[in-house]
Design a protein around this nucleic acid. Structure first.
Length: 727
DNA sequence: TAGTCTGGGCTTTTT
DNA sequence: GCCCAGACTA
């Protein structure tokens, strides 16, 4: 079959391997998606495997869509029918599990109408539980508890298996219990539950297990290094005794450990399946050799890893540019200026450029610089679309209409927009519901039915009125949802709640929020005829990268995490400073530090042609402005791969540490500058230069000097040990 | 009950 | 420096 001919020998070996357990270790840009898609096509076309026996899992919807598209492109010319519709199972772990739970709901403690709670829903349940125990959310941080519960579920540790050995884990256990009970009461699942329950189902129900094994005979897994324990066990349960289990991954690109991902699953796979075939894909089709060499120089310092020798036939290409800017604003200006130059002089398309950073906060100065220069940019995912307040409100309405048990959503929208239902009234509603052993939504629906309601006398006039403000339209929607399509239903809610008036405060932000609502409507419109259940599941399992991919020819701004899986002709990584990248939070743990290294590796290997590494001499963080040190990753790169003012980076450490080790300024903070433009000065490392300017910043005097041999530097007077030669 | 004030905290976020 | 949650006040 000719689609095998386009593959290199290793790729072909992978595609035609087996049947049996196969592990493909695929370096960046080595054609891993190609291997997966060709493998599927090969099974279908050469091995006559019926499509329904194939299951391919990915982590993102985008990856799943792309794969489906490419498989069909391969099969169509071969005269085979495309694997569309429900034939082949191709999707994310979570979507697959959600489907299983809906189909098998009668074996599980939830109904098939369950909703999926996102992080903020989860946290509000946890916050509630903390309050119920009279604990102080400042001592017991909801986020930490949430994290602990999530980790437990990822490790398949249910409430009953959770072992507590100190105060905190004791507290977590109690909250975990309450949290799980609350989820079930809300007829809701969190993301981790989707996997957790399916594993339980397959583990405890032999009939279901063998049914699944009979059906899914060929399993393929993308980004295998990102699987967590639950996902790994799920795969093993599905695979059974004689599995055709084909996994593709790259441990060097494992950057989601903090979400439970465990690249050691790669090793575990080799142990669990001793006969597994391992294939290494090392030839890179994306980057220049220089970029690959930079990547390897950094990643090779990660201990205990299987080395890959990445190579390309593209040639060395241009050197990697290192630039030291003064501060984050100067850094942003450098980025914008450089992009302008590249587009003006080198014929680069603005859309070919990506700017990557460690933390979302770093996008701000960049955005301001682009705005100032009046240039467009694309910002990826800083604030998730479905996480926006107005979107969550409307989704909240839809969810509670769909599933009145969803108390989290009910409480969210009950007084949004405000209709006089305050804390006291809410507490009253909850206690009435509790007393009568019904759900709060039932109390509301009953109140709306008329003054004869058994609950009416439980509330004083004002509270009753306020509750009716919500309950009356609510009870109408619950009836209307059967007859109305999605978009009219949304419109009805918007109209009845006068939501536009509430959100549109005349500001720019208000206008943006209106636009977001419009976008949600059109998303609903595009899915014409979809029922509420499917719509809500989609909304929960879809990320904005999927929805907001407008083709705008402008540079892309994104975090290093968000960059995984993408590629750009030109990549600029900013914030190449200690405490930023690697991030300060990762200092006390070698595994976290290794992950920072991998994160940088991921960023570097996104670049096809050119790479810029930018750092700032001083950086504002949490209000205070501090001097920075160059990232250790810069020091790891052989200097002959670098260009620009790279040398200053390598001499920087010497200057700050060897010339003067005292960080407390010994002299009284200079109120007046000690230097002035035009002075001739001598510096230990940089030699002679002329002062261009000077500035008092906080307690330091910062002098800008043009050195004869080393160009322009910004130095801190109290540390630089400058000798004035003439003024 | 709703608006204003204050204090703590501040990485990443495929689903 | 900025945002969010919870306390405080009108």
């Amino acid at each position: 079959m000719d689609f095998l001919e386009v593959l290199n020998p290793q790729q072909r070996q992978a595609v035609t391997a087996g049947p049996g357990p196969t592990l493909v270790l695929a370096g960046p840009g080595s054609g891993k998606t190609r291997v997966l898609t060709h493998r599927i096509a090969y099974l279908a076309a050469e091995k006559y495997v019926p499509a329904y026996e194939i299951m391919a899992v990915t982590f993102t919807n985008k990856a799943a869509r792309e794969m489906a598209l490419r498989v069909n492109t391969l099969l169509e010319p071969a005269g085979l029918s495309p694997l569309s519709g429900g034939d082949m199972s191709l999707g994310t772990f979570h979507a697959f599990c959600a489907g299983v739970i809906r189909r098998e709901a009668e074996l599980l403690p939830m109904t098939r109408d369950f909703v999926i709670f996102d992080d903020s829903d989860q946290e509000s349940l946890i916050r509630q539980a903390i309050k119920d125990y009279n604990l102080d959310p400042k001592q017991i941080q909801p986020r930490r508890v949430h994290n602990a519960i999530s980790q437990a579920k990822n490790e398949l540790i249910g409430v009953n298996e959770f072992a507590s050995n100190d105060y905190f884990s004791e507290v977590v256990l109690r909250i975990y219990e309450r949290y799980q009970a609350a989820l079930l009461a809300n007829n809701a699942l969190d993301f981790d539950d989707l996997l957790f329950w399916v594993v339980r189902l397959l583990r405890d129900q032999p009939e279901v297990r063998s049914r699944f094994r009979r059906r899914y005979k060929h399993l393929l897994v993308d980004e295998f290094q990102d699987t967590n324990t639950a996902q790994y066990v799920l795969l093993k349960l599905l695979a059974g005794e004689s599995p055709d289990l084909f996994v593709v991954g790259d441990p060097d690109q494992s950057i989601y450990r903090w979400r439970g991902a465990d690249y050691r699953n790669v090793r575990r796979f080799q142990q669990d399946y001793p006969g597994a075939k391992t294939i290494l894909l090392e030839q890179n089709y994306r980057s220049t050799q220089t970029i690959l060499d930079v990547a390897m120089a950094v990643i090779n310092r990660v201990p205990d890893r299987q080395r890959k020798k990445l190579f390309t036939e593209r040639g060395a290409g241009q050197k990697v540019v290192v630039h030291e800017a003064y501060d984050e604003y100067d850094e942003a200006s450098y980025v914008v200026d450089t992009i302008s130059l590249l587009t003006a002089l080198d014929g680069v398309d603005p859309g070919d450029v990506a700017v990557m950073y460690r933390t979302n906060a770093q996008s701000r100065p960049l955005e301001e610089a682009f705005l100032r220069a009046n240039l467009p940019y694309r910002l990826v995912g800083a604030q998730r679309f479905y996480g926006r307040r107005e979107i969550k409100d409307i989704i909240g309405y839809l969810r509670v209409i769909h599933n009145p048990s969803d108390q989290v959503s009910l409480l969210r929208v009950l007084n949004t927009p405000s209709r006089g239902i305050g804390g006291k009234t809410v507490a009253g509603l909850l206690s009435v519901a509790e007393r009568h052993q019904v759900e709060p939504a039932q109390v509301l629906l009953d109140l709306a039915a008329g003054p004869a309601s058994q609950f009416a006398q439980s509330f004083d006039g004002r509270a009753l009125n306020a509750l009716l403000n919500f309950a009356q339209p609510f009870s109408r929607w619950v009836v209307e949802k059967e007859a109305l399509d999605l978009v009219p239903l949304i419109d009805r809610v918007l109209e009845d709640t006068q939501y536009h008036g509430y959100i549109d405060d005349g500001t720019e932000e208000g206008a943006q929020r209106l636009e977001n609502i419009e976008e949600l409507r059109s998303a609903a419109y595009d899915l014409e005829g979809i029922d509420l259940t499917s719509f809500l599941e989609r909304v929960a399992l879809v990320s904005d990268q999927d929805t907001l991919t407008e083709a705008l020819n402008a540079p892309t701004l994104l975090t290093l995490h968000a960059a995984k899986g993408l590629e750009f002709p030109i990549v600029m990584i900013i914030g190449m400073d200690e405490e930023m990248l690697p991030h300060r939070r990762s200092y006390d743990d070698t595994e976290s530090m290794a992950e920072e290294r991998r994160l940088f590796y991921v960023g570097v290997t996104r670049a096809e042609d050119r790479l810029f590494l930018v750092r700032a001499f001083r950086r504002r963080f949490a209000g205070s402005s501090d001097l920075t040190e160059p990232s250790r990753f810069l020091e790891d790169i052989p200097p002959d791969l670098l260009d620009g003012d790279a040398t200053s980076v390598h001499t920087w450490e010497r200057r700050t540490y060897e010339s003067d080790t005292t960080w407390e300024p010994q002299i009284v903070s200079p109120q007046q500058p000690q230097y002035e433009a035009g002075m001739r000065v001598q510096h230990d490392a940089f030699g002679q230069g002329i002062v261009l300017g000077t500035e008092i910043n906080f307690d330091d005097e910062e002098v800008t000097i043009e050195f004869e041999e080393h160009g322009v530097k910004h130095l801190v007077a109290s540390l630089a040990n400058l000798e004035v030669l003439s003024g």
